[in-house]
Write a protein that binds this DNA or RNA. Structure first.
Lengths: 190, 190
DNA sequence: ATTAAAACTTAAGGTATCTTAAGAAATAAA
DNA sequence: TTTATTTCTTAAGATACCTTAAGTTTTAAT
């Protein structure tokens, strides 16, 4: 467990063993069962989760009562509702385990004190925020340029880690396609 | 000019006058005329621009030769092609002045040295990256939930600073609507 | 003031995608 | 194994939005 996060931390910034230990000791390991919620609508998201194992999804319920998935996250990703976590505002979204998962939980207050004790962490999370931003910009561009069928093909080819582990209706939701239409697209493809 | 950026910097992190002076001295004031390019496709984006005055747009040319605007930026915003700037990869987009503009230009190499000399700047740009991410997530959610007409109404009501200063076909492009259809939507609204 | 260029509008026909509703298949629970 | 639950498929009709093409209005250049 510690090896996993140590390797992750050192990918972006050089931390020595004492720093890793100090930071790691503030992280709380937790497990959630499939379908369990890490966050529900209207709650303020007080934690950022580092996924050690498993898949989670972030979604909201639209005006027609349908779930709309805005993000999937997998092993070695940080996941939270950014807006709620950063601005401490009520979440409009749910964060839910798609499989049984193990995470390291980092609270907002702990993070703030760690930033002061370990300025390097500020750099790490600056880089993480930049990477998240780039990933989100890429996703936006993808949706801007591609039709439904192309999005599905792209997802299957480039995000197969998810494609194999989440049900099709969740893929449809993430790709902004109705499950019925995705089913039709798949049929016409072979 | 210095007052403007000083006020901006201190909104997020407390800098003293010497720090502001040291950082400010590394920023280069530049002007661009309407329609002039700050960045073109295939170039690596080596600068981050703080807009003192004016509006810029970030856009790419799609497979049919149409301009697709992905971002507008205005006074007191940082603007760059994030992916190209951070990863030092060729830009797929153009950055262009919509009006005559004045900016403060910060080069990537300068920024890297400033991070080391002034660790507080790491915090500032961590916060800026988080804010950009939140803004982008909000934009994505907007497009996910709203139909064309609603997006237009939202834009006019919430982003009137832009709505009044950019031509309608650019608004259409940003909202992912054809100019013809936007024209139709406007007609049917009153 | 004239001309040229840029921006906006209108309308007809077409297409991608959604909605609704029902049934089939697969997976999990009893 | 049987039943219940979840997931996936099929099909018909509806609609939001696009494409093309032409004409109008506004703004900029000569």
């Amino acid at each position: 467990m510690k090896a996993q996060i140590k390797s992750y931390f050192n990918r972006y910034v050089d931390f020595n063993d004492e720093e890793i230990d100090a930071i790691y000791s503030k992280l709380e390991e937790k497990t959630f069962q499939k379908k369990e919620f890490l966050l529900k609508e209207n709650m303020i998201c007080r934690h950022n989760y580092f996924i050690l194992k498993g898949i989670v999804r972030l979604f909201y319920i639209d005006s027609k009562g349908h779930e709309k998935i805005t993000l999937f996250a997998i092993d070695n990703w940080w996941v939270t509702n950014m807006e709620s976590f950063i601005k401490e505002t009520p979440s409009t979204q749910y964060l839910q385990a798609v499989e049984d998962i193990t995470v390291l939980s980092l609270s907002k207050t702990t993070l703030e004190t760690l930033y002061i004790e370990h300025p390097k962490l500020e750099r790490l999370f600056r880089i993480i925020a930049e990477n998240m931003l780039i990933a989100n910009l890429r996703k936006s561009d993808l949706f801007l340029q591609m039709k439904s069928k192309e999005r599905y093909t792209f997802f299957v080819e480039h995000l197969s880690a998810f494609a194999q582990r989440v049900p099709q209706y969740m893929i449809a939701s993430y790709l902004e396609i109705t499950p019925e239409y995705l089913s039709e697209l798949r049929r016409n493809r072979h």
